[in-house]
Design a protein around this nucleic acid. Structure first.
Length: 833
RNA sequence: GCCCCCGUAGCCCAACUGGCAGAGGCAGCCGACUUAAAAUCGGCGCAGUGCGGGUUCGAAUCCCGCCGGGGGCACCA
């Protein structure tokens, strides 16, 4: 214990190295990105900011390790890199923890941030600590409120009564995007429906743009995410068709993608939970009304889970009302059912059971007529079975029959023809619909941004003027935060009771808070000028830095966060604040860190604690393991990888720096040529590998270089050779992307400072040229010989060499040669008869 | 039910526009150093690419069909 042997002192001690460099880096602040005199080209690298629920976990460690590789690479390549970090610090976990423990969400949140901040500091990412933002602070959420009022002024924020998703456990409404398979995204409670008046952001105004501009992201976003967004937006094109309703003044519009099948309509269906259904039922006899009311009530009660169940029986009520088919004047009975959605299209459809499976199921359940209007054939030209007998609707292409003027046309022709006919008759127009709904942003919870609206009896909904923002949250003390279906803010009477900004009369504050996805939908702009007090962000800074060159985060946000951010960005562009419409030019989705084949969780007992991994193997080894495990988008199973192996490798790299005896600044050209070739080949390849996110391969190549350098020191050129120094400096520079401590220590031992700011060495192209290459000689595709040839060898010469080679001659024997394929200088394939 | 991705050595993973299946690591085995061990250094590849067809001079790579694993969407008319 007391004696330190020479051997011990020469051993790699990651704890000591971490402790040595952390304070130095704090002092030097290498990653500040706001200096006005800095004229380098810019890059904005962004990691999704953490939610401060407890300490960092393995998932954070992976994401930040990978993002840092990219940021550090661009720094070494001479860019002025903005790489910020902050906290997404409003939200339910803080509130639930506060309720459970009887504490203030503010204190809980701030404490967690202190802890996470210390962990992130230790993790040594190239973050600019001058730009930290926290969304729960009034100086941030003030600008959420500013954003809300701007959207309100432009008609993009509005309030409407609607049947909304309701989580009975969290006692709050949820956005469509937060309902996953009928369950609350947060707590997995089955979601129910509730009629409430809520605030919405009008995302649907940007539906076309959100869809079409996905194309501009192709190649730089994962195609999976593009597909998911496309799916989610769900644009469909068709026609709105007017149906006259007996006993009703106004016709009703239905939306259909298949106007060609109008002649096949045999009934109509309205959504059971729609106002239209209630109105139509009102006009029916008393018994029908009672039947409808009972049905509507049962529909409202059913959970999302029930609704989504497959193999579900069709149910409904005949409303004793009739609509008139505009193309043939037929009377169509009108039913109410839950298989038609109130908030899609017009909440009403024409039913064509022969050519729509859902309609057919309903027709069979209710014994309604089915009329085939398309003659559909299979690949062999055989007519498909009658839907009535088979129970399978024919939804494909075919030839129109029983359809008046459309007879004989194909599906596409018929759609065009009938759409024109309807337009001429004034009973139909082309129409587009979206699966995407407007974004419901009201939440009946405490820990979020108060909605900056005052409700005045005289003036209505009045936005709080900019000079009165922020509307700060009242202190949690004294408020009952328990979920009860109404915002806890309602109980803060001193806070709720206010005066109308317009008329000065008594008025009430809106008591709901905003969905925390509002906070994260523009935070990337706030980083550009986090201290700004007279606006959400500096417009010139945005012009300089934004949009984000590289965004890094989990695929869990493929729809929600990314879609909302895209929407807000487009809205801000239309306000003239920025000149781009897509916030994230490139996106990298890292996989998840698992353990023994499944997601880590305390209850499953397979939780791996990041802090323990860091203590045992060191920050560098954990980061290196994350990068080396495989392609970044693949999941990592921690049981399959080896942080101890990474630690061993780092020690091996470190020993190279310890062993170098050559002086700095000596021209490496005088050194070992073979080692130099490997060094420059590695440098050459590493940049394109990093830029293609193939970090695992970069690490493998650095390992190769380390092995070659070791060999050169022990059994080759020796520790004093300038090529050895060049190789070890290269190792330090490349390794700094993954292992900042180890490489800084190496860099320091080599007589330099700040490896993070080291310039990426120029590649000497002349060292990449090989003197000879191995040419494979195949006979009928099988390797029969190898030749060492100059790289510039001509085709004819190579052909002769190959034909004359021993291996080839042996394999050919006396067979006739049919053809010889020459791919100089690497391959010759001799094809014999 | 519909759509997308992935199957290479015991394990994690490489393999440029089709051109020698193996870069790197884990585990394992052997050796050097050591009184011994640890650490370190050196050496050792055992699969023919999930299966079956096809295209091609040549297929891990392209096409078709299965099998296995993962993910997304799911009454959107």
């Amino acid at each position: 214990m007391t004696e330190t042997t020479v051997n011990d002192a020469a051993r790699y001690d990651f704890h000591a190295i971490e402790e040595r460099w952390l304070p130095v880096w704090d002092e030097r602040q290498l990653f500040r990105s706001g200096r006005p005199e800095d004229t380098r080209p810019t890059k904005y690298v962004l990691d999704m900011f953490p939610y401060p629920s407890g300490d960092l976990h393995m998932g954070h460690a992976e994401a930040y390790a990978l993002g840092d590789v990219i940021a550090r690479h661009w720094i070494q390549k001479g860019f002025n890199v903005l790489h910020p970090i902050g906290w997404d610090s409003f939200g339910l976990p803080a509130e639930n923890a506060a309720i459970k423990r009887g504490i203030d969400p503010y204190g809980w949140t701030e404490d967690n941030i202190v802890q996470q901040r210390a962990s992130i500091r230790r993790y040594a990412c190239s973050f600019d600590w001058d730009r930290v933002l926290m969304t729960h602070r009034p100086d941030y959420y003030r600008w959420n409120q500013w954003l809300f009022t701007r959207l309100f002024e432009r008609g993009l924020a509005y309030r409407k009564p609607s049947l909304v998703n309701w989580c009975p456990n969290d006692q709050t409404v949820l956005a469509n995007e937060q309902v996953v398979a009928g369950l609350c995204e947060r707590c997995d409670t089955p979601v129910t429906k509730k009629k409430l008046t809520q605030w919405y952001f009008k995302v649907t105004d940007y539906g076309d743009e959100l869809l079409d501009e996905l194309e501009t992201l192709r190649g730089t976003w994962p195609s999976k995410v593009i597909a998911m967004q496309r799916n989610w937006i769900g644009r469909s094109t068709g026609a709105d068709v007017s149906f006259t309703i007996e006993g009703r003044d106004e016709p009703i519009a239905i939306y259909t993608t298949r106007p060609d099948t109008l002649y096949g309509a045999t009934f109509m269906v309205v959504a059971a939970d729609s106002d239209l259904a209630a109105e139509l039922a009102q006009g029916a006899d008393e018994q029908t009304r009672a039947e409808f009311d009972a049905y509507a009530e049962s529909v409202k009660k059913e959970s999302e889970i029930d609704r989504l169940a497959t193999e579900r029986e069709k149910t409904g009520v005949f409303l004793q009302r009739y609509g008139i088919n505009p193309v043939n004047g037929e009377r169509l009975p009108i039913w109410a059912s839950d298989y038609v959605l109130a908030d899609y299209g017009h909440g009403a459809i024409m039913a064509v059971p022969a050519h729509d499976q859902r309609d057919l199921d309903f027709a069979r359940a209710m014994d309604l007529p089915v009329r085939v209007v398309l003659d559909c054939r299979d690949d062999a030209g055989e007519r498909l079975a009658d839907p009535v007998e088979s129970g399978v609707a024919t939804t494909g292409d075919g030839t129109l029959v029983n359809s008046g003027s459309l007879n004989g046309l194909a599906k596409a022709e018929a759609i065009a023809a009938i759409t024109a006919e309807l337009a001429a008759a004034g009973s139909g127009v082309p129409a587009v619909n979206y699966r995407l709904r407007d974004w419901l942003i009201s939440r009946q919870r405490y820990w979020g941004t108060p909605i900056p609206i005052v409700h005045c009896d005289a003036c209505g909904e009045v936005p709080v003027p900019d000079d009165q923002l922020p509307v700060t949250l009242p202190p949690a003390e004294g408020l009952d935060l328990k979920p009860k279906g109404q915002s806890p803010l309602a109980a803060a009477t001193d806070w709720v009771n206010t005066t109308c900004p317009d008329c000065g009369g008594a008025a009430l504050r809106d008591t709901d808070t905003m969905d925390t996805f509002v906070d994260s939908s523009w935070y990337f702009l706030r980083y550009l000028s986090p201290g700004k007090t007279d606006g959400p962000f500096d417009v010139e800074a945005a012009a300089k830095w934004a949009p984000i060159d590289q965004y890094v985060g989990g695929v869990t946000h493929a729809i929600l966060h990314l879609l909302y951010s895209r929407f807000i960005t487009k809205a801000l562009r239309d306000m003239g604040m920025i000149d781009f419409g897509e916030p994230f030019t490139a996106l990298l989705n890292q996989g998840m860190v698992q353990m023994d084949g499944s997601a880590m969780s305390k209850s499953r007992g397979n939780l791996v604690r990041l802090s323990e991994q860091l203590d045992e193997f060191g920050v560098d080894a954990v980061r290196l393991t994350m990068a080396f495990a495989g392609p970044p988008e693949d999941d990592i199973d921690w049981a399959d990888v080896s942080p101890s192996g990474s630690a061993k490798f780092l020690a091996r790299a470190w020993r190279l720096a310890r062993d170098v005896t050559g002086e700095p600044g000596v021209d490496p050209a005088t050194g070992d040529a073979a080692l130099r070739a490997i060094t420059h080949r590695t440098l050459h390849d590493a940049q394109s590998l990093v830029e293609a996110f193939r970090f695992n391969v970069v690490v493998a190549r650095v390992m190769e270089l380390v092995n070659a350098t070791r060999k050169a020191i022990d059994t080759g050129a020796g520790p004093a050779d300038p090529a050895v120094r060049e190789a070890v400096e290269t190792v330090a520079i490349l390794l700094s992307l993954f292992a900042p401590y180890c490489s800084e220590e190496m860099w320091s031992m080599l007589g330099h400072e700040d490896v993070a700011l080291a310039t990426y060495p120029a590649v000497d192209e002349s060292l990449l040229v090989e003197e000879t290459v191995t040419c494979v000689v195949q006979v009928k595709g099988k390797v029969r010989d190898r030749l060492e040839v100059p790289p510039g060898i001509g085709e004819d010469e190579l052909r002769e060499l190959a034909l004359a080679s021993d291996g080839a001659a042996r394999a050919i024997g006396d067979a006739a040669i049919r053809t010889v394929i020459v791919r100089a200088p690497r391959l010759v394939n001799i094809v014999t008869a």
